[in-house]
Amino acid sequence: MKPTALYTETRVRADLDTLWSATQEPARHRRWDLRFTEIEYLPRADGEPQRFRYATRLLPFLTVAGTGVAAGERQRPDGTRTSALRFSSPHPLSLLAEGSGYWRYVPDGDGVRFLTGYDYRPRWGRPGALADRCLFRPLMGWATAWSFDRLRLWLERGITPERALLNWLAEIAVRVVVVACAVSGLGLEPLLRLLGPFAAPLAYLLPVLLLTAVCLALFLPPRVGTPAARRCLRTPPTRVRAPRLLRTLETP
């Protein structure tokens, strides 16, 4: 069975031109999009689609790169905007061989519905298809949604992408420490006996307190300044179709 194409949608309370600039300018795009380390436009002749190069650093000494071609429609009769792209990577370590996708910008009251849909073909045959279905595709879906929320925080609250990443790492660290302390605290019953008459009630309450701490660490919603994939819509509310603009682009 063919895997489901990836979809992410968020609502950003920002001006349409501001959102367009933050997503279409490579220098700004790579700041908030977790999927890319580098994005740069390549030289082009007048009238040709924009070609670009992208790269993702998997390890300090390993970078996977690819190329793509993109086109955008800034003035559509219904007031929306669209951007479409095709991309491919010849790198043998890139599970993603080639793919295509689009961005849509739909004005909505005091904000913009910003959504994407994309799909790709994995390489490495059946092992690659299995790795994609079980690990890579869910990871890509999460990274897209997390990045969309980081973009929203930047444009709505002025929290820079760099600061948002630090907020996320700090919150993850606190949650991990709380869980680790709670798990290690399960073996404190022998020490409680040193408290004499207070040992019995404390020994009874300790598991409850530790379990409560673990539940809070695992399930408490992220802080408002911390990006979270859960805030984005991951399933299209209605059946969506790729824009016709996508059919005009050739695979790079």
Score class of each variant (00 low, 15 high):
Arg239Phe: 06
Leu95Ile: 13
Leu206Gly: 06
Leu206Thr: 02
Val176Ala: 15
Leu85Gln: 11
Glu9Met: 14
Leu115Cys: 13
Leu115Val: 04
Leu96Asn: 02
Asn167Ala: 12
Arg157Gln: 05
Leu210Ile: 03
Tyr7Trp: 13
Phe148His: 15
Arg223Val: 03
Ser88Phe: 10
Ala199Leu: 01
Ala129Tyr: 11
Leu246Asn: 01
Phe198Glu: 09
Thr82Tyr: 02
Gly158Val: 09
Arg81Ser: 11
Asp17Ser: 12
Ala170Leu: 15
Gln75Cys: 01
Leu155Gly: 09
Gly185Glu: 02
Asp33Tyr: 03
Arg239Gln: 15
Thr238Lys: 10
Val112Trp: 08
Glu73Pro: 00
Arg193Lys: 07
Ala14Gly: 04
Arg123Ile: 10
Gly68Lys: 06
Arg86Gln: 05
Ala5Leu: 09
Leu186Thr: 09
Met140Ile: 15
Glu98Trp: 14
Glu250Tyr: 01
Gly128Glu: 07
Gly111Gln: 03
Leu6Arg: 09
Ala213Val: 04
Pro252Gln: 08
Leu249Tyr: 06
Thr8Trp: 10
Ile159His: 00
Cys215Ala: 14
Ala182His: 03
Val183Lys: 04
Pro227Thr: 03
Gly141Glu: 13
Thr10Tyr: 00
Thr235Arg: 13
Pro26His: 12
Arg244Glu: 13
Ala70Lys: 10
Trp124Leu: 12
Phe87Val: 01
Glu250Pro: 00
Ala65Tyr: 02
